[in-house]
Design a protein around this nucleic acid. Structure first.
Lengths: 182, 182
DNA sequence: TATAGCATGTAATTAGTTACATGATTAA
DNA sequence: TTAATCATGTAACTAATTACATGCTATA
């Protein structure tokens, strides 16, 4: 029976498995990949790694370069088992997202028509920027991993890019509608 | 110059404007509308309303029914101005969402092929359930508001339903691909 | 008559961020 | 030589959730 951990712990284990060996490297990797659906910070990474070490899910060895200290972590068999158990578990974690932009849209009836249009345009612009960024910056990084046989980061990057693009088109349609009926 | 508040405060102001007059009613309304992009809880609602009252953005009057206590809140002019200023403001709040499901997918390379397929299937099922729920339960409620001239709750409900449906199709395609190449 | 829903609030806990603090190495 | 990046950690703060506590009212 594997220990139950919280998602940030699995993020650490997963990133170690993907080749990031230091806390700093985990954070860097997260910033170009999981950031979009599971952001993290160094103040989370280091204590979490310490916790995982205490529980025997990772081991830590010194990996200093000269005078610059660095630790290299490695997932243990127990850590691996815990990760796999979580990936297989069917308990449905409720999808939650928080978006100030959509909250604004929800309340947009309070605005005069032209401000409504401006708001929709801004949201569309944001979706566009996100889609472009994912497509140009994130997908290529993930594709590099894919050549090494690790395919899911690329799958997720494409899902993200495509979904933002879908939202962009949806909002463009809404904008056109507003223009017509205004 | 209007005061700067945080999103939960605007949620309260907005819900009051949409016709929910008590703290309890705000929470109920949020549970069938903003829950999907801005969830809240009673432990947030009551203190926030008290804060808004202290700052003169809402007024509170007694609205008890017999022995059952109830407060009815109303947005003041200052409150209205603050809401409008926020709705118009262009400062781009970074879209953030956190999803354990997508995190699992990101790390799915650790799983054997058949478990990967099962995971994708589960995610697709979840997207399907969300799309159906939004379409059958949330959109109709919002449409009722729409007849009264308040259109954006319905806009957002449709955006949500359509986006989940898009994700469902995307994942179905991925699943088919995995089946083929497996 | 008892259960579900209405109604309000506080306390304790959890999760997460930003700011602080320090210092080495590399590349422009 | 200086700025960016590598590297690790803690402290203070903010946001939000769950659990606790209470009691009324309508309806099945």
């Amino acid at each position: 029976m594997a220990i139950k951990l919280k998602p940030p712990a699995y993020l650490m284990l997963g990133m170690l498995r993907l080749g990031a060996s230091s806390g700093y490297a985990i954070k860097k990797a997260a910033d170009v990949s999981t950031r979009f659906f599971w952001p993290t910070s160094l103040a989370q990474v280091y204590p979490e790694l310490a916790r995982l070490e205490r529980e025997g899910l990772v081991t830590r060895r010194d990996d200093s370069h000269g005078a610059r200290a660095r630790s290299a972590y490695q997932v243990t068999d127990r850590g691996d088992a815990a990760l796999l158990a979580w990936l297989r578990s069917t308990h449905e974690a409720p999808l939650q997202f928080r978006d100030e932009g959509v909250l604004r849209l929800f309340l947009a009836d309070a605005l005069p028509r032209e401000d409504q249009v401006a708001l929709v345009r801004r949201l569309r612009g944001r979706a566009h920027a996100a889609a472009v960024h994912m497509h140009n910056e994130i997908v290529p990084l993930a594709q590099a991993l894919e050549e090494g046989g690790t395919r899911y980061p690329a799958v997720v990057a494409r899902l993200g890019a495509d979904t933002y693009q879908y939202a962009e088109k949806w909002l463009a349609r809404l904008e056109a509608e507003l223009d017509r009926s205004g």
